[in-house]
Design a protein around this nucleic acid. Structure first.
Lengths: 355, 355
DNA sequence: GCTTAGCACTCAGAGAGAATGAGTGCTAAC
DNA sequence: GTTAGCACTCATTCTCTCTGAGTGCTAAGC
């Protein structure tokens, strides 16, 4: 059977209405729409065809139709009208983002919260750093009180530090020596390359400050390992309870439990080689808890090789047009914000802070 | 009327049973308990008295009794049996905590998750730093690529840094000068004392590197302000949906929304001058969403003036004995862990990391 | 005087039909 | 090709009855 223009129009109407009402859509409701100038009987025929083609489903004989996963897919790919953000919406999104995003690691939480507010659905925000970082430079600063500060500058331009309390007072000279040794032997190597032999070798050359070496190595490998980690936040979980499809507490709980269990930590992987906004409709999701849940997600750039992802989780019947529009706009604004080069002559610029 | 020993015993039995079953407790159920050697009629009389005294309530005439807020209060304060943690329980708690708590700021999330798992209820973890921090020392490190690293050592021994890209190449000498100026004028003052005049004065003395000053001041005040902030995480929200009292979706949503809205950020204030474990029973909560929800919370010490709090939120009918026991044990173990001094000669010790 | 057996009474909740009405598929007329 | 009309289906809602857990009270027992 061919998918005529009129069939598409009917399908779009069904999806649109079902998104709005969460109730099965009957032929009469379609007839009531403006510029739908056929009788309910005609629409019924078309709907019967669409059902036969697998785009619509019928919960039971005497109910209206609801879109099937295939129906949503077609809708998302072809039929959905572009949702244009109103000026008010862009304004409020920008305003929200402009509020200082002070720390990258706090950012995920804030972004998740903002996205959740903008879409009225639970939102996920993830930043992930590629692995394989190494130390570019070690710096030891005498800090008084018998402490020193260890500063690591990494190849990805992150800077990390740690306060170390010294067992005995160490002088400027010993630290200079240690610092030189560290920079000579332990830079430009990844976490895996810190072997026991290396540790021993460094300790031998380190002289009086040798006792510090294990602490430093420990911290360094730890830090490097963490560079490859991801940082994730979920916000607005409670919003799913407001949706009619989750009046069933068990269902809601299953979904919410999957938030707790990092079920979404694989999403960045899904986005790896994608660009733009991706929609996963119901059964397209791998995780079984999400079989009747859709996910909309977008990547954004933080610079320095850091990748960010924001996503929204909702019922298959979510307003894809609106959600994708807002999400894309968010991602774009965020990327733009991070691209803003941080320059000393721009005192009002906040930019991203590295630590 | 006097609260006889037998009345107390009956009250305790009612609360215990209600905690277990979440169903109104009838006189017959009490009779069935071991070492309750009275008939149901006697118990009925006692229960009628307890109801008159305000310790029990009756949902409707032909139902059993449930404890009132006053009943829970009495139970928590006097009647509740000490819950002894089994060796298995202490072991699993310790094991969980021992897993490296690498960063203080990540810690809240982990702790919340652990506590939630241990109690099977949603948990909150908060760390808060007292305000009034100042910079003890500024350090500027040349980082190559036309960048410098600004390192702030704060009076509370935190160390913070930031990578700044220079508009123009700056030399070692200018940085030395700037560093000296900063240390002379901007140390030992709190965020509020950074005035426009101060900024101007510093810029005048800063010479060639003056362009850097606004960025540095911006970052510094920002950092100092953030020192007084709190860091909070919630975990296991979904667990409330498993409780019979929250089968009512609206009720569950109201509670969960309050998690999203920082309704609990005032809890540390409640704990301010308390020690040990505090229980807030239902209506004792200030926030109206929590009127029929209880909160159990404990403080723990992180050292360096940082204060931590862990709390559990659940129905008024929660197993107070078990929850308080686990929570206290958690707090104790955490405090102990942070008290462990970090020494360079103890390479296996992880301790707390400062950044 | 405390305790207990017995009994009448209350009332939420479960279950069984019956009524409702939204929606369908099909047929025949336009 | 489109539409009016009609018989049919079936989830939902409601009403009503029944059931049983639990109560309060009274009178007898220890």
């Amino acid at each position: 059977m061919e998918l005529t223009e009129r069939k598409k129009k009917v399908l779009r109407s069904v999806v649109d209405l079902y998104i709005r009402t969460a109730e099965p859509v009957g032929s009469k409701a379609i007839t009531a729409l403006p510029d739908m100038k056929y009788s309910s009987a005609t629409i019924r025929n078309e709907m019967a065809d669409l059902t036969a083609m697998g785009y619509l489903e019928q919960p039971h004989t005497s109910a209206g139709r609801i879109p099937s996963a295939a129906g949503y897919r077609l809708y998302v790919d072809e039929l959905m009208a572009d949702y244009r953000l109103s000026i008010d919406e862009t304004k409020s999104i920008n305003l929200a983002i402009e509020e200082k995003m002070q720390r990258v690691d706090k950012m995920v939480e804030k972004v998740a919260r903002l996205v959740s507010q903008a879409t009225d659905l639970p939102a996920i925000s993830v930043t992930s750093r590629p692995t394989g970082a190494a130390v570019k430079h070690f710096e030891l600063i005498l800090a008084g009180h018998g402490s020193i500060i260890l500063v690591l500058m990494l190849t990805n331009d992150e800077v990390v530090n740690k306060l170390i309390k010294l067992p005995v007072a160490a002088g400027e000279t010993e630290l200079k020596l240690l610092s030189a040794v560290l920079n000579a032997t332990m830079t430009e190597i990844t976490a895996d390359e810190f072997t026991a032999e290396l540790l021993e070798k460094v300790m031998r050359s380190a002289g009086e400050a040798a006792a510090l070496v294990p602490v430093i190595v420990d911290f360094t490998t730890d830090t490097l390992r963490r560079q490859g980690s991801t940082n994730m936040a979920v916000a607005g979980q409670s919003r799913i309870l407001g949706l009619p499809e989750y009046r069933d507490v068990d269902k809601a709980q299953r979904l919410m439990a999957s938030f707790d269990e990092d079920a979404f930590s694989n999403l960045p992987a899904v986005m790896q080689h994608e660009n733009g906004t991706k929609v996963l409709v119901g059964p397209e999701n791998v995780a079984s808890e999400l079989k009747d849940t859709s996910v909309v997600m977008t990547k954004f750039d933080i610079g320095d090789g850091l990748q960010g992802m924001i996503g929204v989780v909702g019922p298959t019947r979510m307003d894809y047009a609106k959600v994708t529009a807002r999400l894309s706009y968010f991602a774009e604004s965020l990327s733009k914000m991070f691209a803003k080069p941080e320059q000393a002559q721009l005192p009002e610029a906040t930019g991203d802070e590295k630590e």
